[in-house]
Computed example of a mutant assay.
Amino acid sequence: MDDALQIPHLRATADLELRPWSLAAADLELVREASADDLIPITTVPATFSREAATRFVERQWQRATDRTGYPMVIVRRRDNTPLGSIGLWLKDIDEGRASLGYWVVRSARGHGVAAHALAAMAIWALEELHIPRLQLYVEPWNRASIRTAEKAGFECEGLLRSWQKVGNQRRDMFMYARLATRTLTEADRVS
């Protein structure tokens, strides 16, 4: 059997880092804040927080590495070790030369470029170190902040996928964004 994926520590900026999930109180508190956030509905974050549900959430993240289906990470502010959000690289379609990314940042950390810096760092790592030819992500059309995040991190919109994903009890449209390995990386791609 293959070994589990090794989740790295990635520096996104001088003050932001991506790291593996843990059962530390700060990571469980991040899950608590995300559980109460109505803008984080399409993830596996528990809708109702409990320590048990948060623990199961973190254990699911670990299982993704064990199953070799993805690299789930916490976005952390380094100066005070505060978790701000989550980002993941998902390998469901890796045999086709593509991987998906997903991210969320809790309300208390929004508006500071945290998601864009984390997304750019994860994309550069996936393209340069893992040599994945195509990265893609999906954004609901109403989510202007996430659209700006994707574009700031070097992703380009490729089109609207109608009724693409079920969110709650509804099918939702999604914009597909992609970033290709064939595109030359510049300093601007690393988000300033």
Results as ranks from 00 to 15, higher is better:
Glu96Ala: 15
Ser108His: 01
Trp62Val: 04
Glu140Cys: 07
Gln136Phe: 15
Arg148Ile: 08
Arg179Thr: 08
Asp3Ser: 14
Arg144Leu: 12
Ala54His: 02
Ile124Ala: 11
Asn143Gln: 06
Ala47Met: 06
Glu187Ala: 15
Asp80Arg: 09
Ala12Leu: 07
Phe155His: 06
Thr13Lys: 06
Asp95Ile: 13
Ala54Thr: 01
Asp3Trp: 06
Val106Gln: 05
Ala126Arg: 04
Asp27Gly: 00
Ala181Pro: 00
Ser22Glu: 04
Arg190Leu: 11
Leu30Ser: 03
Trp104Gln: 03
Arg51Asp: 13
Ala188His: 13
Val106Asp: 00
Val139Asp: 02
Pro41Ser: 09
Arg32Pro: 00
Ala188Glu: 14
Met1Arg: 13
Glu59Ala: 12
Glu17Trp: 01
Pro8Met: 06
Glu29Ile: 00
Thr182Asp: 12
Asp15Lys: 08
His9Leu: 12
Ala123Gly: 09
Leu130Gln: 14
Gly154Phe: 05
Val31Glu: 01
Pro83Ser: 03
Trp164Ser: 13
Tyr138Asn: 11
Gly159Phe: 11
Ala178Val: 15
Ser108Glu: 00
Gln165Asp: 07
Ser192Glu: 12
Gln170His: 14
Glu151Met: 10
Gly102Leu: 02
Ala53Thr: 07
Ala34Pro: 02
Asn143Leu: 08
Val167Asn: 09
Thr48Gln: 12
Glu96Pro: 00
Ser192Thr: 15
Cys157Ala: 14
Leu161His: 14
Glu187Leu: 13
Ala4Gly: 05
Val45Asn: 01
Glu140Gly: 12
Gly70Trp: 03
Ala34Glu: 01
Pro72Met: 08
Leu180His: 11
Thr13Tyr: 08
Met174Phe: 15
Pro133Leu: 07
Ala126Gly: 07
Thr69Asn: 10
Ile40Asn: 06
Ala12Trp: 01
Gly111Val: 07
Ser86Thr: 12
Val105Phe: 03
Leu130Phe: 05
Ser35Phe: 05
His117Pro: 04
Ala53Met: 06
Leu127Trp: 03
